[in-house]
Amino acid sequence: MENLFWFLTSFVALLFIIGLYALLATRNLLRILIGMEILTKGVTLLLIAAGFLAGRQNAMQPIVITMIVVEVVIIAVAAGIVIASYRNNKTISVRALRNLKG
């Protein structure tokens, strides 16, 4: 594999496309979270690839570990918001959350 950088970033780009498509196409709040998760997967891969290419995986590992922990908290809070919204509206469609305008 002569061009490892492009090889790895191509897969990151594909993951970003899937994630963004998921964010834009769906009306289901939980599926939006899944889209966010896929974007995060892409970033994880990109960071690890950066560590690998720079030959400094030792410096990158703590970064990725911290990032994973931080993202879990974000996802948990976001899931909490979805649950609370479901409790109010009995639906997890985005339409329940589309009233603020102006």
Binding site: A78, I81, V82, A84, S85, L97, R98, N99, L100
Partner: peptide, 9 residues
Amino acid sequence: TNAGLEGAF
């Protein structure tokens, strides 16, 4: 509130 949850989301 619904508005708060929407803003937060």
